[in-house]
Design a protein around this nucleic acid. Structure first.
Length: 960
RNA sequence: GCCGGUGUGGCGGAAUUGGCAGACGCAGCGGACUCAAAAUCCGCCGCCCUCUAAAGGCUUGCAGGUUCAAUUCCUGUCACCGGCACCA
């Protein structure tokens, strides 16, 4: 929406007959387009790789990456250019500082949104995606960003997803060796099984079946328990409306992140990633990277490491022990003596077992009713239910290994199957949830911890660390021990009897990687008649996504992948599919699931290093050059992209997935750094205005008008207040970048977004304010060019004060760019231009405010921010080569030295005088000058100062 | 509830290590130019008291503390934004 018409009072000046050379919108747009064309012709922003002609190995490298966009039909919004302008300024600056800069751009184009849009419009996603990319590219290029477009690619291109599939195969062929904490080829594990002739489990326990006697299916299923990319049966999030399963991360409050459709829990056989194997390293290595604290905290919470113990409770039938023990995870093993009952999740296998084999007290009907109700209640209901807890007694009892007491086992949905073992020991005295449950159902409550300052009075649970009480039995005695000592004692005692052990638990779960959708990367894997999976050989990649006229997902209770419709593609032979190890004519079926949207963005930053390589996903030489860097002291750090800028909405998903893939590639020797992104920065959300009624509801901007200086609803005159809100179609407050560029030019747009405030802060778009930076560019232009004649304005003589200010500006602008303080950098340049403009006598067009040399250096400062106008001025100064190939101007520190400095003098904390003292004045000299000042004498009124603090060259504070 | 972050004029914001709070921009006010308007240029512009001015007082969400000196450090507290949320 263009807001120009609504604010006519501050529209920019336009060229008139008198001033045909004025820098205004049309003028700016014309020169911007001309320079963009020229830069493209000259291939100005091409980045050379090691080994290329033109590569200069003596320069330091700087890899600066934007989160590549997901092109949508709606085109760019004002949030995109915010981060992109920031990186562009930094990259231009770094080039001028003499760095080899890698600054690429591409397209994240597979996935649900494009497919949903295609379904809505009935146009094939290949078409809608191609159009969206074309629109995005046109819009991005209009900003004059210095991307090396030679490196552009889209994740949907076979040349790209070839290697996405290849990386998936690396995971398929690898397992995590916990003993060395890294991934290794699964062939090594298989060889071990063969040589030992046994099926060995993760924890070292061997099963009865010998490898040589196991069926192929058994062998495969066993190996699948180790593969990093494996086929596993999991209870997954099935979204009937989207016709696909979703990762846990893509489900928010029981609804799909995309579209907000209900999601059901359903067991399915799916491709998974064993990301949980990397939980500890993903957590620990957060210490290596320079990332926002909030993002590290979010990742750490998502991984959710928690140390505790696993404790096994015997399930009793009458007086005897029955079946497998009921295992629980607890972080408070020291409270075992206070465990007066147990709770298991409705989905816990023990529930089904007890329904088949009821205990004497089991009310089968009641339990069945409860678990049915829990199953049918969607996750939304389950989470939105008020705090009131529900549950039923199973009729079974377990033996508390500490007290020996029989304690009842209840089933309740406040215990989640997805965390820990799906069962808990309930310690009502010291856990709020258990307490609530015990109160409601009349269960025993026993205090076993005494917490200083928190007496237990039976009205609520007391949680925290303290000293154990009421905790003594034949198993162990904890009384008097502090919480941590008691936990150690308890876990030792339990371990000695083999009924418990220390254990670490994570919230992170394995990553569900299959989607029942069309628009994604096919898996390079097929199934034979026995249901065994076989990988496609690397030489036969990519497995091309078949063209499919009808790509619609099937809305159903059972997953029906659309690729199943491509019969000729699905039903093939081992030979045709490129599967080794099977007779060539063996009939096989291709995997019809596709990879999720995240796949492409997990490694795109690596591909940019070497995007045209068709023999490797990236050459190791290019990868080593762009991804590794050293600290100032020469030591290696996490390495990776030097600066990665993008929205905080990707704090967990994309960034965690990419880190995981990167670590697998690192373990397998394909990349040389443990982390993909050394430094991460989130640009803040650009917000907009909206209006709010007294009841809190929001009103779109076009339904509001101003009456007597007050904002009211157009329809009924009811008062509304202006608030800051997200840009949204419904609020009619979305700003379209194309309109802003048409009104002011791209340079003004860039400058405005950078001048709005700190890059990381959320800030409201204010169309009214754009004029400020536009005027700055006009003044800068007028500093160099006469608006009437178009002649160059250059001062013949250099003003010493101006020269000093220029040096100071060079220093400060550089400092602010390094700190990503672009708003402050621009403010410094405005100050310089204002200072240079004021003394200028427009009546004498032959005299400018700056000398040629000063104008040149200022233009170089401006170039990263407003590349087009700077290039135009540079060209008019007579240069044949680009200002963007210049060396950043240097400042002379000696120029910044002032001979005299102004020092404030405070008496009783108030500034009473400002004195001029020589720069070199010592503290006693400064003090003497201060005390001699009449205002100071007056303020002192004859009182003798108690103390005088002098910070030489800074200030004087006289205490009385 | 827990975690992370942010509170500075009418508005967006600035302030190296604790050292002159409010740079710069918008809006507003006054002037020059103009037949007039726009644009441009010049000046003023935190709040209170005051006829005006001088002078004074107050001021970085709020209440304390440390310090010669606090937007900056510490304690408590409130508000807003973001994330997580029955995770045993």
């Amino acid at each position: 929406m263009s807001q120009k018409s609504s604010t006519p009072s501050n529209s920019p000046s336009t060229p008139s007959e008198e001033t045909p050379h004025r820098y205004a919108a049309a003028f700016a747009c014309t020169l911007e387009l001309a320079w963009q064309q020229r830069w493209e012709q000259d291939d100005l922003y091409r980045t050379h790789n090691p080994g290329d002609a033109g590569f200069d190995a003596s320069k330091p490298k700087f890899y600066c990456l934007d989160m590549f966009p997901y092109p949508s039909g709606a085109g760019l919004h004002v949030g995109h250019p915010e981060g992109y302008t920031a990186t562009d300024i930094l990259c231009r600056y770094k080039r001028m500082q003499g760095c080899n800069v890698l600054h690429p751009m591409g397209w994240d184009a597979f996935g649900l949104p494009a497919e949903q849009y295609a379904i809505q419009t009935g146009v094939h996603p290949r078409e809608t995606t191609r159009n969206a990319i074309a629109t995005f590219k046109r819009q991005l290029q209009r900003f004059g960003f210095s991307y090396d477009w030679n490196r552009e690619f889209a994740t949907i291109e076979p040349e790209y997803y070839h290697w996405t599939q290849w990386i998936w195969l690396q995971c398929y062929h690898a397992y995590y060796d916990a003993s060395v904490q890294r991934a290794r080829p699964i062939a090594e594990l298989e060889a071990k099984f063969v040589s030992q002739d046994v099926l060995m489990d993760v924890d070292g326990s061997a099963t009865q079946v010998r490898w040589s006697a196991a069926s192929p299916l058994q062998r495969q299923q066993h190996l699948d328990r180790y593969r990093l990319a494996y086929l596993g049966t999991q209870t997954v999030n099935w979204c009937p409306k989207l016709g696909t399963v979703l990762a846990n991360e893509e489900v928010i409050n029981g609804r799909s992140e995309r579209g907000g459709f209900p999601v059901m829990r359903k067991p399915l056989r799916q491709w998974m990633f064993r990301i949980t194997a990397y939980a500890d390293r993903l957590l620990e290595d957060l210490a290596l990277v320079q990332w926002p604290e909030s993002t590290r905290a979010m990742q750490s919470e998502w991984i959710g490491r928690s140390e505790g113990a696993e404790i096994r409770f015997d399930v009793l039938r009458g007086a005897s022990v029955e079946g497998d023990a009921l295992s629980v995870f607890t972080t408070r093993s020291d409270t075992l003596f206070g465990a007066t009952f147990m709770v298991i999740a409705p989905e816990h296998p023990l529930v089904a077992h007890m329904l088949e084999h009821p205990h004497a007290e089991t009310d089968v009907a009641a339990v069945r009713l409860y678990i049915e109700a829990a199953k049918n209640r969607s996750d939304i209901d389950r989470q939105s239910t008020s705090k009131k807890k529900t549950g039923v007694f199973t009729g079974a009892y377990a033996r508390n290994p500490a007290t020996g007491a029989s304690i009842p086992i209840w089933v309740a949905d406040y215990v989640l199957m997805g965390y820990g073992t799906g069962a808990i020991m309930a310690v009502p005295a010291h856990d709020e949830r258990d307490f609530e449950f015990a109160k409601d159902f009349g269960l025993a409550i026993v205090q076993v911890v005494e917490i200083a300052g928190l007496p237990f009075d039976g009205t609520h649970a007391v949680s925290g660390e303290g000293v154990a009480i009421n905790s003594a039995s034949a198993l162990c005695t904890l009384n008097g021990l502090t919480t941590s000592a008691a936990q150690d004692a308890m876990t030792c005692a339990l371990a000695a009897r083999k009924v418990g052990a220390k254990r670490v638990q994570y919230k992170l779960r394995d990553w569900l990687f299959s989607r029942q959708r069309y628009w994604g990367e096919p898996f390079p894997v097929v199934f034979d008649a026995d249901g065994l999976h076989h990988p496609v050989g690397e030489a036969h990649l990519p497995v091309l996504l078949p063209a499919l006229a009808d790509f619609h997902p099937v809305e159903s209770d059972q997953p029906v992948p659309p690729l199943g419709k491509a019969r000729a593609w699905v039903e093939t032979t081992a030979h045709a599919a490129g599967v080794a190890g099977l007779p060539p004519e063996t009939a096989v079926r291709r995997e019809t699931n596709t990879m999720p949207n995240w796949a492409g963005s997990c490694w795109y930053y690596l591909r940019y290093c070497d995007p045209k390589n068709n023999t490797r996903f990236v050459s190791s030489e290019a990868e080593r050059y762009w991804m590794t860097s050293r600290r100032a002291d020469g030591s290696m750090h996490s390495g990776g992209v030097d600066l990665y800028i993008g929205g905080a909405e990707h704090a967990v998903l994309h960034l965690l997935y990419a880190r995981f893939w990167h670590k697998v590639l690192f373990d397998l020797g394909h990349v040389s750094t443990p982390e993909p992104f050394g430094r991460l920065f989130h640009q803040g959300l650009i917000q907009s205005h909206a209006y709010q009624r007294p009841d809190g509801s929001l009103v779109a901007v076009d339904l509001v008008c101003e009456v007597d200086g007050k904002t009211v609803e157009r329809e009924n005159g009811a008062p509304v207040t202006q608030i800051i809100a997200k840009m949204s179609k419904t609020l009619k407050n979305v700003v379209n970048p194309d309109d802003v560029i048409a009104d002011y030019g791209a340079d003004t747009f860039r400058l405005y977004e950078m001048y709005m405030g700190p890059l990381e802060a959320a800030k409201p778009w204010n169309t009214r304010d754009i004029i400020g930076v536009h005027r700055f560019l006009q003044r800068a232009w007028r500093l160099a060019i006469d608006e009437k004649s178009g002649a160059l304005l250059v001062a013949a003589t250099e003003d010493a004060a101006m020269e000093r200010l220029l040096h100071r500006t060079i220093e400060r602008v550089g400092e602010h760019i390094e700190r990503l303080g672009f708003n402050s950098a621009i403010a410094c340049m405005i100050e310089l231009v204002n200072a240079a403009t004021r003394p200028m006598d427009l009546a004498d067009p032959t005299q400018g405010g700056l000398t040629r040399s000063q104008l040149e250096r200022f233009t170089q400062l401006l170039a990263p921010f407003a590349p087009h106008i700077a290039e135009e001025i540079w060209s008019r100064l007579g240069h044949a080569t680009s200002v963007h190939s210049c060396v950043w101007p240097v400042f002379d520190a000696a120029m910044l030295e002032e001979h005299e400095v102004e020092v404030p003098v405070q008496v009783r904390g108030k500034v009473r005088a400002r004195i001029m003292v020589p720069k070199t004045a010592t503290a006693p000299e400064t003090e003497a000058i201060a005390l001699a000042h009449p205002s100071v004498c007056e303020a002192l009124a004859g009182v003798t100062p108690k103390k005088i603090i002098v910070v030489a060259g800074r200030m004087v504070n006289i205490v009385v």
